[in-house]
Amino acid sequence: MNNAVLSIHDVHKSFAGLHALSNINLDIRESESHAIIGPNGAGKSTLLNVCVGRLAPTRGTVLFDGTELTGKHPFEINQLGVARVFQTPEIFEDLTVIENVMIPMFSRRDRSFGLNIHSRFDEQTEIQSESVQVLADLGLGDHLAHLTNSLSRGDKRRLELAMCLVQHPKLLLLDEPTAGMARADTNATIELLKRIKATGITIVIIEHDMHVVFSLADRITVLAGGTIIAQGTPDEIKGNPKVVEAYLGEETV
C-alpha cells in the first residue's frame, strides 16, 4: 500500500445510468507491470480515461504519488509524470517524425507557457540529439524527416511510445499496444516493452493478447462488467475459475 504509485479508490463511473465502472479499488505498485484484462465493454478503457483526466469519475478518488488526480486537466496530469499511449495512435500527423518527439521534450523543458521565439527549433542540439537517439532506439531512425502520415501503423505506435518515453514518465499507460499487429511485430513490441520495464518505469497495460500479458505482467487485474473479478500474479489468474468463465472461457469454448 505504501509503495503504490497509483491508487484508485472506490471509483464509480456511470454514463446516463449505465454503470461502466463500479467500486474499483486498485493499487499499482512502483516499478511493476500491471495488466488490466477483461472482455470487450468491461470498462478497461474507461478506467484508463479516468486516470488521465479525460473522464471524471462519478464517485471515488484516484491518487498518483499522493496527488489527487480527479478534477485535473489531462495536461496537468501529464506534467505530474503520467504518459499514455492510445489504442489508435494519437500523434501529430502533419509534423515530421523528429518534430513529433521534440514537442513532448519542449513540454518537459518548458513546464509553463513561454513565448519561446528567441531560438530556432532546428538549432536545439541537445533536444535533437536525444530525440534522434530515442527514435533510433525504437527503430525509427530512418524516418526522421518523414511526415508521420507516411508511416505504417506499427511505426506510428512505436512513435507514440517514443513521444511518451522522452518525457521520462513515472507511469506509462498503454492501451492495447499490439492491437492489429502481426505476430513478428507483436514479439518485437514485447521485447521493447521488456526493455522499458527494465528501466524501472511503472507500466499499466490493457491488452487482449494473452501472449503479451503473460510475457510482461507482474500482476494482473481482471475486469468484467465494470467490476474487478480477480487480481493476482499471472499464475494465480491462469488458475482462477471465475476468470476462465468470464473471459478466457469465451475464447477456449
Partner: peptide
C-alpha cells in the same frame, strides 16, 4: 495529444 503531452 497536446493535452496528454502536458501542454495547455
Amino acid at each position: 495529444r497536446m493535452g496528454y503531452t502536458g501542454f495547455n
